[in-house]
């Protein structure tokens, strides 16, 4: 959550041209082809696919139900509980498998939601400029500087029901600003292009210009922003859950760590309970980061390795 992305102009148009070209050569979407060509990105995509697979097939893959507490409590890894058990006597591996569901769901839902908010605010501000831009930019900057986790904590503390969707909502409305800022500055660059003027003279409407002329030229930025938002959301959920502010009825890697911490995993020597969620979390983060690398390298020619 503490990592900041550099703010610099990116040549998003070039990335889209590559994508359109790639799409022509094959029947697969161009973006996928481009990403697949990059080695780092390919590893990331495969890793992500594994996590998605595990999350989708959790009931099949998990040996037990996540809340089945019929095992001996706080035992280390053994034949029937590969990663040992919790202090409540639940199977750690099963919780881990189900936890992937929560993380991916939060990442996908909150990532999408904050990307949509960021797009709407950023595009409106950047395309319309003037007073609208001044006002929206103020909100973007405000949302950027407000300390996110304390705000999440405050919001979550007031919420009458603590469900997973509340967490997703809280994460989304606190995490859209960075993407909005990037999209705003990119559209400001793109909207002065002559081809936008040409589209106006060709009789295209503003909405069509934004959707058909501008957006396709900044897809890479949207993808990077979405990935960043996913990373932030997954981290945010884990943080909140770890602090005990998550949904107590959902199994997530954050709640596992919280229980491992409070349940004395470190004192009883049930290290697997502590290590496993962290490793799984790191793996998912790595997958998304690797994919982001590929997208970033595409749109920022200076970062291309040569």
């Amino acid at each position: 959550m503490t990592t900041s992305l550099p703010i610099q102009p990116v040549d998003t148009e070039q990335a889209e041209v590559a994508a359109v070209e790639a799409a022509r050569a094959t029947k697969v979407p161009g973006w996928f082809v481009i990403l697949w060509r990059n080695r780092k990105c390919r590893i990331g995509l495969v890793m992500l696919a594994v996590f998605v697979f595990v999350a989708l097939l959790a009931p099949v893959l998990a040996p037990y139900a996540p809340r089945d507490n019929s095992f001996t409590a706080s035992v280390g890894p053994n034949g029937s509980n590969w990663l040992g058990t919790t202090a409540q006597g639940e199977d750690v591996l099963s919780q881990l498998v189900y936890g992937a569901r929560t993380s991916l769901l939060v990442g996908l839902a909150a990532g999408t939601l904050s990307t949509v908010i960021g797009l709407a605010v950023g595009l409106t501000a950047g395309y319309l400029r003037g007073l609208v831009d001044e006002v929206l930019s103020f909100f973007i900057n405000l949302a950027l500087v407000v300390p996110v986790l304390p705000l999440m904590i405050t919001l979550a503390a007031y919420a009458p029901v603590k469900g997973l969707w509340l967490i997703i909502f809280v994460i989304s409305i606190t995490g859209w600003a960075y993407g909005a800022r990037l999209k705003r500055s990119q559209i400001i660059t793109l909207r002065t292009r002559d081809y936008i003027t040409a589209a106006k003279f060709a009789g295209d409407s503003t909405a069509r210009i934004i959707v058909r002329e501008i957006l396709p030229n900044m897809t890479s930025l949207v993808v990077v922003g979405f990935m960043g938002a996913c990373l932030g959301a997954i981290g945010g959920e884990a943080g909140l859950a770890f602090l005990g502010l998550g949904d107590p009825t959902t199994t997530s890697w954050g709640t596992m760590l919280n229980q491992a911490n409070t349940g004395g995993a470190m004192l009883t020597g049930q290290w697997a309970w502590l290590i496993a969620p962290g490793v799984a979390f790191a793996g998912l983060m790595t997958a998304l980061t690797l994919i982001n690398f590929g997208v970033d390298a595409l749109s920022n020619p200076h970062l291309r390795e040569d």
Binding site: E13, V17, V20, D194, Y195, A198, F201, N217
Partner: peptide, 16 residues
């Protein structure tokens, strides 16, 4: 009233 632009590289949308 139509326009012909100066920079042929900026006047066409690179993805169209």
């Amino acid at each position: 009233t139509q326009l012909v632009f100066q920079d042929p590289f900026a006047a066409l949308n690179p993805t169209r």
